[in-house]
């Protein structure tokens, strides 16, 4: 059976859940091999083996983290030349999509981005036009390169002891042509990752200001949820842009999405429309968000949300 490469998405070796989803999908298509770039392999190996990676290709060169995305493309393509995979799966982050785009040109391969699932025939499911259409498509030329969104499938364990293969890479001049001159790390919230979270609690312009977000955060914490924001709230500086949900922010597909003080513009819907259950709190009964909501409360979020948070506390005892 041919290998299917999964590019590991990790932070210092802590493997993101999306990678375990990709390994699960890879098993439908062939023999899963992980491609691990950067530092932290020791932390990652157990997880990769638990989710069925037969091999782990490793590139730990300083070039990986010392430059922008193109060096990762060099590394991935070196592995591709060695493994001759039948498909390449990458997480649909902005970095993942860029690696996929660069690889598709260098390999002469077709590419599908933002798949919400991939079946055993290699048919990828995608959403189009702000999630109003569901498209099935397939790469017909070269080695299929598919970027897959978080929460695509339930990860299934399949214990293996992966063979570790060190790979040596020659980096192209183009890949090392841009210099990183400064890195300012961002503060961590301690909450679940927005794109992976089972529950997302979001606030929009109706939250009225940065202070208003404490109400949103309190509800999120009561539910163990991630916090999201509309672009109006992010642009106003009330909540960091990294938490924006929508066309130019994150796409989320949680079990439960709670929109507070968000009108439900098409660009916002594009990022949350595929959530399993949608709840809205908005004082305007005409707000388009109610067209999507499984349950909506027409009212002031500053009355409804704290009451809900308190009630959750009571019920959890």
């Amino acid at each position: 059976m041919a290998e299917v490469l999964v590019l590991v998405d990790h932070l210092d070796g802590s493997v993101r859940k999306t990678t375990t989803e990709l390994l699960t999908i890879a098993r439908r298509l062939g023999e899963p091999s992980a491609v691990f770039l950067g530092a932290g392999l020791d932390n990652a190996l157990e997880t990769l083996g638990r989710f069925g990676a037969e091999k782990v290709y490793v590139v730990a060169d300083a070039e990986i983290d010392g430059y922008l995305i193109a060096t990762k493309t060099d590394a991935l393509l070196t592995v591709v030349a060695q493994a001759s995979p039948s498909a390449i799966l990458i997480t649909s982050t902005s970095e993942g999509k860029e690696i996929a785009a660069r690889a598709s040109i260098r390999l002469g391969s077709g590419i599908i981005t933002d798949a919400s699932d991939v079946d055993e025939n290699g048919i990828a499911t995608q959403s189009a036009f702000a999630a109003s259409y569901i498209i099935g498509s397939k790469v017909t030329h070269g080695t299929p390169i598919i970027t897959v969104k978080p929460n695509a499938t339930a990860p299934i364990e399949n214990l293996t002891t992966p063979a570790v293969v060190q790979v040596s890479v020659e980096y192209g001049a183009l890949s090392t042509s841009a210099r990183i001159t400064d890195v300012a790390p961002r503060a961590k919230s301690g909450r679940p990752d927005l794109t992976e979270a089972a529950i997302v609690v979001s606030g929009g312009r109706g939250v009225g200001g940065a202070e208003g977000f404490t109400v949103i955060e309190a509800l999120a914490d009561a539910l163990g949820a991630a916090v999201g924001a509309s672009r109006a709230a992010a642009d106003a500086g009330w909540y960091p842009h990294a938490f924006q949900v929508g066309q130019t922010g994150k796409t989320v597909s949680p079990q439960l999405y709670i929109a507070n003080g968000i009108s439900g513009a098409i660009q916002h819907r594009a990022g949350m429309q595929t959530s399993k259950t949608i709840v809205a709190v908005n004082k305007d009964s005409e707000a388009p968000i109610f067209e999507l909501a499984d349950f909506g409360v027409v009212g002031d979020l500053f009355a409804v949300v704290p009451q809900l948070t308190e009630e959750i506390g009571k019920r959890k005892g």
Partner: peptide, 14 residues
């Protein structure tokens, strides 16, 4: 879905 006006217990109903 169900959309209810908040009659004071909207949070509880939610």
């Amino acid at each position: 879905g169900t959309v209810i006006p908040d009659g004071g217990d909207g949070g509880v109903q939610l």
